[in-house]
């Protein structure tokens, strides 16, 4: 099993206490865009926890995927205010641009398209995140432009 240098880096940065678990998982996630079984086992070892415990924490959070995702994760807000502003059209536009369905990852592992709950931009919907970057007041054209910007 090859050790991930990201886990070692994260543990060095945040320490080995249980309360460092979230920052460590978030660090590894940011580097790899998902948490592999091996990563979680390595974190467990470093923090002296059971791997089930680490998996239990990681799998609770929707922003800490434990299945491989694309390098850029698109999360379109589906909560009511964005829904009223036709977020369906945004999803359709992205689906046809990337040739994937909602929930899927492009074959080149560049993009994953997901829906998410309220992003906190209800007055400027529809809104989406591409990784940590926010895009608001979307139109299908603006959404496609945002994807192109991230190609």
């Amino acid at each position: 099993m090859s050790k991930s240098s990201f886990v070692a880096e994260a543990v060095k940065k945040y320490g080995q206490d249980r309360e460092s678990l979230m920052p460590i998982l978030q660090y590894v996630y940011e580097k790899k865009h998902y948490l592999s079984k091996e990563d979680m086992q390595e974190v467990a070892e470093a923090l002296d926890l059971s791997s089930a415990d680490v998996y239990g924490t990681a799998s609770f959070y929707s922003f800490l995927d434990t299945k491989e995702k694309g390098e850029k994760i698109i999360r379109v807000c589906k909560s009511i205010s964005c829904d009223l502003k036709n977020k369906e059209q945004i999803i359709s536009a992205i689906e046809s641009k990337l040739n994937i369905k909602n929930g899927q990852t492009t074959p080149d592992k560049k993009f994953t398209l997901l829906e998410t709950n309220c992003l906190g931009w209800c007055h400027k919907g529809p809104a989406m995140l591409i990784n940590d970057n926010v895009y608001t007041e979307l139109t299908p054209e603006k959404a496609v432009a945002a994807i192109e910007e991230n190609l």
Binding site: S79, I80, S81, N117, C118, G120, C122, H123
Partner: peptide
């Protein structure tokens, strides 16, 4: 952790 749908004031 402002997550209530329709809330964005804390941001």
């Amino acid at each position: 952790d402002e997550g209530e749908p329709g809330t964005f004031k804390d941001r």
